[in-house]
Nucleic acid binder design. Sequence first.
DNA 1: CGCTAGGTTGAATACGCTCAAAGATCGTGG
DNA 2: CCACGATCTTTGAGCGTATTCAACCTAGCG
Lengths: 255, 255
Amino acid sequence: MLAHQQHQNVSELASLNWPLIKKLNFSQQLDHKEIVSLRKLHEQTLVIEKHQDFLSQNNIRNQFIVINQGWACRYSTLSNGNRQLINFYLPGDIINPYTIAATNGTHSVFSITSLYISPFDQEALQQLLTLSPKLDSLYKQMICAEEAMLAEHVVRVGRRSAYQRTIHLLLELYQRLDIIGHTQQNTFNLPLTQELLADMLGMSIVHMNRTLHRLRDEDLIETQSNKISLLDIHKLEQLAEYQGILLDTKLAAQG
Amino acid sequence: MLAHQQHQNVSELASLNWPLIKKLNFSQQLDHKEIVSLRKLHEQTLVIEKHQDFLSQNNIRNQFIVINQGWACRYSTLSNGNRQLINFYLPGDIINPYTIAATNGTHSVFSITSLYISPFDQEALQQLLTLSPKLDSLYKQMICAEEAMLAEHVVRVGRRSAYQRTIHLLLELYQRLDIIGHTQQNTFNLPLTQELLADMLGMSIVHMNRTLHRLRDEDLIETQSNKISLLDIHKLEQLAEYQGILLDTKLAAQG
DNA sequence: CGCTAGGTTGAATACGCTCAAAGATCGTGG
DNA sequence: CCACGATCTTTGAGCGTATTCAACCTAGCG
C-alpha cells in the first residue's frame, strides 16, 4: 500500500484533516480549487453521541452525511433479535440516505463511537461534481469501491470460514484506515466489541471470541484495549485470500 | 405490488419490449422523448451464449451493458473451489464494469442462460442523464435499489436460516420479474440449477435440495422443469420476513 | 442407447451455536 | 479513591444445522 503523498502548502495540509479530502487526494492528487470545493461540503458540522440510531425510517432528512471522525455502521435486525451489520462508515465515508430508505425501513445507521459529521444537500454535491470532472470521476470511483466492498462482504459471509472471515475483515479495515492515516505501523484503533464484530461477520459472540483467541495464539494479531496489531500482514493476506479493493485505481472513468 | 401502467400508443408500447425501459417506466411513467433517448442505449445488440464468463479481469472493455433477455450473475470463486454468487442480472439490469474491476479481478460475470445484451459507452449514459433530470433521478433510484438489494443479500446470507434464505430470495426474484412482466400469476421462469441457488445463498447443493423439498412438502412452492410457482406469497413473506425493495419509491432525488 | 448434467437420498461428521457461568474492565458516583 | 454496576470478555459443555461423502436416480440430448 502506498505512502501518503506530498502536499503543497500549509492551508492545503490543514484541509487534509478532513478525511474525505484526504481519501480523495490519496486516489488522485487534488489541486487547490478542488480542495476548496470539497471543503464547502464540510461547512456544517455536528456531533452525534455514541450508540445512537441516528438514521432510520423515522428520521431521514434527505441529506447526505460525511463522517469526519468516529465509526458508524448500517445494520438490520430480524424479529428473533439477530442483527447483521452491513457495512462500516469510517472517517471520510459518505452516507447516502437514499440507499437506507430503499430497504423499506429495515436498515438503520448506528453510531459506534461518538461522531463528528457534516450533513450536506445532494444539490451541493451534484453541483460540485458537475463543475469538476475530476471530482466527478473520483466520486464515482469511490461509489464503485464501496459497492465492491459490499460485494466482497457477501462472499466473506457466504463462503468463508469464521477464521477467514475475521482475518479478511481486519485486513479490509486496515487498508481503509491506512488511506486516511489512521494506522501506526501495523496497528490501528478498533472501536468494536466482539459482539459488533460477530454481528458484522454473521457469527456468534462466543465463536468470535474463540476465533480472536486463536489468532492471538497463532501470533497473527495482538490486542490491547481498543488497539489491534496485525503481526504478519502477508501471512494474513494469504490465509484469507485477501486481494484488497482498488481504492486508488487507475481506471479511466466510472458511472 | 402494483399493476402495470397504461401507455399512450403503439410505438411506445413496442419500446416496452426493452426491459430497461419497461422497468424505468414502472417507477415513473416516461414520456415520448425519454423513451426515445433510452432506446439509443439499445442501438447495438449482441448475443452471448450461455455458460460464458463474458466479463472478467481479462476482458473488461469499459462499456456498460444492459441485459435485454436472459439471466447473468456476478460471482467470486475461492481457492478451495467454493463459489459465491453476488447478484443476479435480470432483463432490464445494467452491468457497471467498473464495480467488477474494483474488486481486483476476483469477481466475474457469467451468463446463466443465453443473453441478448446491449453494450453502450458511459458517455452515452452520462449525456442522457444530463439532458433529462427525470431519467437522472430514475437512474440514481435504480442504483440505490441495487445497492439495497445487495445489502439485503448480506443480511440474508449472514443471519437467516437456510429455509428463510431460500424463501427470501424467491420472493425478491418474483418482485423483480413482476416489474418487467416476466411472471404469470404467481409463477415465473427460474433458469437456475440447485447448484446456482446454493452458491447464491451460501449453502451446499444437498441442503439446497432438501430445503426446496421441504417447501414443496409444505405446499409453499411448486416446480416443474424451469417454472416455479409461489403458492402462498403472503405466508412466504411472513416466514422470511420479506419486506421488499422500494423499486418504485416516491423519494425525491438520489445521489 | 449411452452419456452427461442435474436432482435426490442416506449416513457420518463438523463447524459453529446456544446455554450457562465466571472473569475482567471501565465508567461513575459516593 | 474505592466500590459498585454495567458492559464486555472468556471458558466449558452439549447440541443442532448444515456439510461432506457417496451412491443412485432422472431427464435431456447426441
